[in-house]
Amino acid sequence: MENQSYLVSNKSTFLFEIKKWQQQMFFIFLILICLSGFISPPIALLLGLVVANLAGHPFLHLNHKATTILLQVSVVGLGFGMNVNSALSAGKEGFLFTIASIFSTLTLGFFIGKWFSIEKKTSHLISCGTAICGGSAIAAIAPVIKSDEKQTSVALGVIFILNSVALFLFPAVGHWLHLTQHEFGLWCAIAIHDTSSVVGAANKYGAEALQIATTVKLARALWIIPVALITSYLFKNKKSKIKIPYFIGLFILAMLCNTFVSQTALVAPYLVSIAKTGLTVTLFLIGAGLNWKILKTVGIKPLLQGVLLWGFIAIAALVSIIYLS
C-alpha cells in the first residue's frame, strides 16, 4: 500500500514538472517571437496580458527586475538615435508643461483621495505615478512614505492598467485629431504614465514623435527627486533614501555620442533597432505580470482616482499643446 502511494505521489510530481517545463518553454517561445520583430509593442503588451490570465507567468518572481533592467537598457539604446540640439529644444518647450502638470495633478490627486476616502499613502502613490513617470515614481516614493506591499501594489496596478489602455488609445486619438509628430510626442510624454508606454505609443506614431516624447519624458522623470523631498517633509520621514534614475545620465551620454562622435553613426542604427526590440519584450513582460489576482486587488475607488487624474492631465495637456503652444 505504501509503495502504491509512493508511486502515485511520484507520478503526480513528474506530471507537475512536465507541465511546468511546457509552460516555461511556451513562455520562452513567445519572448522569441517578440525578439523576432514580427509584432509591435502594443500587440506584445496584449499578448502578455492574454498569457498572464490564461497560461500564467512561469517566471513571475523575476518579472519586475527583468522589466526594469530591459526598459532602462532600451531607453539608453534609443539615445543613439537622437540629436542633442533637437532634444534640448523639445525639453525646453516641455519644461513649463511639466511643472504645471505635475503640481496640478498632485494637488488634484490629494483632494480626490480625500473625497473618495482612499487610504492616504495609496492615494499619494497614485498621484505621483500619474504626475511624473508611473511605476518608476511609485518605486521611488514608496520607501520615502514607508508604504506597505498592498498600498504599493494597488498603486502599481492602477498605473499599469491605465498604461495598457494608453498604448492603444493615444495613437488612435492622435490620428483622429490629426496631431503633428511634434504635438503627439509632447502630449504622450506628459499624459502617459510609464516611460515604456510613452516610448511604445510614440514609436507607433513616428520617428519625430519618438524623439520628442522620450526626451521630455526622461526630463520629467528627474522631477522624482524634488517631489520625493517634498513628500519626505509632508510625511515627516526625512531619513528615507531617494532613488535617483541614473540611467537617464547614460541616455544623455548616448545622445552626446550620436551628435558629436561621428564614428557612432556606424553602430547607431543597430543599437536603436535592438533598443526597440527590447522595448517590445519589456511590454510583453509588463502585460504578463498583470494577472486577475493583481487586478482584483486594485479596487474601484483607487482605479477611479487614477482614471480621473489621467483624464485631467490628458485633456489639459492636449488643449494646452493645441491652443497655447
Rank of each mutant, 00 (worst) to 15 (best):
F251D: 02
L256D: 05
I138Y: 00
G185C: 08
L271R: 06
F260W: 08
N163A: 08
G129A: 14
E149F: 13
S40L: 12
V199I: 08
S325K: 08
F97N: 10
V198K: 01
S74H: 01
W187Y: 01
T231I: 13
Q22F: 12
S147D: 04
K296S: 09
F38T: 14
Q211D: 05
L156N: 10
V198L: 04
F38K: 15
G94M: 05
V165S: 06
F97R: 04
A288N: 15
G91F: 01
A265Q: 06
V154R: 14
F26H: 11
E2M: 15
T277A: 11
L218F: 03
T280Q: 02
V272L: 04
G113P: 01
L285Y: 12
T68M: 05
V165C: 04
S164L: 08
A219D: 07
A189H: 07
S153Q: 13
I300P: 04
I212T: 14
K20Y: 11
N10V: 03
L169A: 14
A191L: 01
I248H: 02
K241C: 11
I313Q: 03
N203W: 07
F168I: 12
I294K: 11
L271D: 09
L210Q: 12
L62K: 13
Y246W: 13
I286A: 06
S153Y: 06
P226Y: 01
L266R: 13
K114W: 10
K204E: 11
K238D: 12
S104P: 01
Q24V: 12
N83D: 09
L125A: 03
I248N: 04
L46T: 02
I138S: 02
A265E: 12
F59T: 07
V199Q: 00
A228H: 00
T214S: 14
S196C: 10
N63R: 01
L295C: 09
A288F: 09
F168H: 02
L266T: 11
Q22G: 12
T231P: 02
L218H: 09
